[in-house]
Design a protein around this nucleic acid. Structure first.
Lengths: 298, 298
DNA sequence: GTACATTTTATACCAATTGTATAAAAATGT
DNA sequence: ACATTTTTATACAATTGGTATAAAATGTAC
């Protein structure tokens, strides 16, 4: 993400908040950003990729600031947690994150849906972890349920609050929900009444944190592929290169088994040996993302 | 809604469930329904109107069947309620209602958003009413909160359940949530801890049940307007007619005060006196909806 | 059965939109 | 000063929702 991209992203964020994704045309973005079409499609492969990049950067910012809250705000762990929740709710509302996420539905792409699922899972995951730090360990088998309930209560109360004439302060909502969650968790722990077995956990969150890099990968892959298809005149070389790139993507994006890093590295080397590709910035960018992703996954 | 419209609606429902609203082109609908473009636009003014009609008819069917459950299923009131919730969740999932509702976001029309809000409010409203019938009266000031919490818990657990490898039966989820709601409601009643004051109720649901007829109204109004604009050659007559129609819509669709039925009736009479409009089926349909709506509202 | 009215079809068309292609101009690096 | 990259401007293709219209099919009244 260079400065130009961030610049476009900023203007687009404005537009999406004003008119929504669907009613913002690429033309609007060009005018607001003061760039031409060519420049836009140089930095983003499509309007939908732009939306995903935006969501990705917002998520990054949210996580960063959420951790900052934990550092700056002094108090017992539960109070800090409440403060973090308050921040997250406010941040999401101010930046119209729910609306952005809903916009992704029009894209109708499996890949996008997966990414959104991962975003949501990451938030739930964080809540679940925090509850484990806050509540007594005897309640721990019931905290998965507790996290689901807390998230659901918060979301629904927040929605209701938005349509009311005299909305309540977020602080009050969060405190109320925390109290209820605490009572529930203690009660179900006594009654030993469990809904979800937390072992489902791993099934849901397996490798899901790689999501950010996954979208980066699809982006740089698309770019590199275009270079290959346009610049490589030798048909056999083109075919070979595409085979490598496709292999690497498949290897990194499937979640079932570990990616075979050595084969990936060797594929990268082979790609570099193709003269027309060597030293192109597209390949450099591609290499960077791929190596980060392999290191991260192992 | 005549047979042809229902027929188109059925085929469209299939398509929307298979590919979603966005990826279903009008062309697809024409082919699946075996009709031509002209016929389609005779019965539906736009693709988006079709979606709203579909949602409207699904909602109608849901309410009907939900009442049927109450009649057929014998047991104490709470058990019946649980059974109704189970039905609603299953019905919504089978007919992909959440997906349909999410699709409406791409339309980006205030009117549509309002209609969706009303749909959601109607469901919440029903839950709230049912809780009041089920739980002891001393908890009544806390049942608005209870309804919000119950709805939120159900939604979030249901979502989580869908992404799991081994989903739980809906029955178990509903029972669990009902138990938790009961415990919460009793607890907050003892502690006298209220979040929302139920007086906000009227503010939210004021006249909202008219929603079905509202969409009907917009539909027939659009049709009549087209007739006026195309068939009335006398410019003054055209202007006059449009003024009447606009007035009636505004009067019926605003929620702040009661519609002035006598002026509406007189406007209808004036419309009938215009020769070119008299006895057109568009005007007949229009009259029917308008009179139903005034009767209902008074 | 004929004449008229309505419904339906087929098709051409318009406007808007996303995305591609390309040549010229401007900016930047060396 | 020259070469390379970036950026612009613009034309273009493809798809879509929606309108317009003439011809064909169907229904209806006499």
């Amino acid at each position: 993400m260079n400065q130009k991209q961030l610049d476009i992203l900023g203007h687009t964020h404005q537009l999406f908040m004003e008119k929504g994704y669907v009613d913002t045309s690429v033309q609007d973005i060009l005018e607001r950003s003061g760039i031409s079409k060519g420049t836009f499609y140089k930095y983003f492969s499509s309007k939908s990729e732009l939306l995903l990049s935006l969501l990705s950067s917002l998520q990054e910012s949210l996580i960063l600031q959420r951790e900052k809250v934990a550092i700056e705000y002094k108090g017992d762990n539960q109070k800090v947690f409440e403060e973090q929740i308050i921040f997250m709710l406010s941040f999401a509302e101010q930046n119209k994150i729910p609306e952005m996420i809903e916009s992704t539905l029009v894209l109708n792409e499996v890949k996008t849906f997966q990414y959104i699922e991962e975003l949501k899972a990451a938030t739930f995951n964080w809540i679940y972890e925090r509850l484990q730090q806050i509540f007594p360990s005897k309640t721990s088998p019931y905290l998965f349920d507790g996290a689901v309930l807390l998230e659901g209560m918060l979301n629904n109360i927040f929605k209701m609050n938005k349509v009311l004439n005299h909305p309540l302060p977020i602080e009050q909502i969060v405190r109320y929900c925390m109290k209820r969650t605490e009572e529930i968790v203690i009660e179900v722990a006594e009654q030993k009444e469990q809904l979800f077995n937390p072992s489902v956990y791993s099934a849901v969150f397996n490798e899901k944190t790689e999501s950010h890099f996954s979208t980066e990968l699809t982006r740089v892959t698309a770019k590199l592929k275009r270079v290959i298809e346009n610049k490589l005149t030798n048909e056999e070389e083109q075919k070979k290169s595409l085979e490598f790139v496709t292999f690497i993507s498949d290897e990194l994006l499937q979640n079932d088994t570990e990616p075979r890093t050595f084969i990936i590295q060797s594929s990268l080397l082979s790609l570099e040996k193709i003269n027309t590709l060597a030293q192109t910035k597209e390949l450099e960018e591609y290499k960077e993302v791929v190596t980060t992703l392999t290191r991260h996954a192992s």
